[in-house]
Design a protein around this nucleic acid. Structure first.
Lengths: 147, 147
DNA sequence: TATTGTTATACTCTATAACTATA
DNA sequence: TATAGTTATAGAGTATAACAATA
């Protein structure tokens, strides 16, 4: 399209990351909409599935969502009967989050749809290059103090 | 921090990109604040500096900002006397954007500050790896129809 | 005194529709 | 009829402060 040059920011990742995030976010909204769930739902459910009994704080930290942001997300998921908040018996401040049976099924269905968002990426990049990209991003996140 | 696993989304870039964008965005706000300018100001000014006379549409497309979003950004920059809107003589619908002298100076000052945002990235990654990361992102953006 | 989850609130970013002036 | 810029508006995402319950 535009053949403009980034100029001073040619070696900056910031502007590119914003572009990428906006694009993926728009696709994510469209993909999540048929499920009546907001963006990030699959991310959280996927984390719960892999790490059942996690606290909301642990999930929020991992996903880069604020506490209040996660509360409203879990409210949505609970309202749809996909997630259960079980009070921890050892530390009654904490919620141990678990997927319901319906939640397990929804994660599987949703993954089929939402994973299509990144299909163009997997077409463009070889498996090795995708691993490279993810590896580099993870190192950057760690350097920035995330996760 | 949290040693949770991404689970199903282990090979997805979406959640990681959101984390990265949020982190960089928070730093960008903090860095731009002393200048009294919103995030993205340096991006736009840098694009104008490198491509003087660009139309607002060209800039918006490149930066991944909507038309209205760019209008308010340019409003801010113009209010600060950093950017001038010159009506094109050949197509009087278009604005040819140019940096003022003050704008040129501000870009230089701002770059010193804002580029520090990504200092941790440049410390973690070798120059070659940073090029790799940017190259991969650019290919992904193209595959997604951006830029 | 510190931490988890919650509520309330506000602000930024982004998106969309409708208007104008030009082409 | 289409395009560049603008205005107005709404929505999603994110952030902070203050509170209750628990440690």
């Amino acid at each position: 399209m535009s053949d403009l040059d980034w100029g001073l920011l040619s070696n900056s990742v910031g502007p590119r990351v914003r572009l990428l995030r906006n694009n993926l976010n728009a696709r994510s909204i469209a993909a999540s909409d048929p499920f009546g769930l907001p963006t990030g739902s699959l991310t959280i459910m996927s984390l719960i599935a892999q790490n059942p009994g996690s606290s909301q704080k642990e999930l929020a930290d991992k996903a880069g969502i604020t506490g209040p942001g996660l509360v409203s997300l879990v409210d949505d998921l609970e309202r749809h009967g996909l997630v259960r908040r079980d009070r921890s018996t050892t530390d009654r401040r904490r919620n141990m989050l678990v997927l319901t049976d319906k939640g397990e099924k929804t994660v599987a269905e949703m993954f089929k749809v939402v994973s299509q968002i990144e299909a163009p990426i997997r077409e463009e990049l070889s498996a090795k290059e995708l691993d490279q990209l993810i590896g580099l991003i993870d190192r950057v996140l760690k350097a920035l103090g995330e996760s």
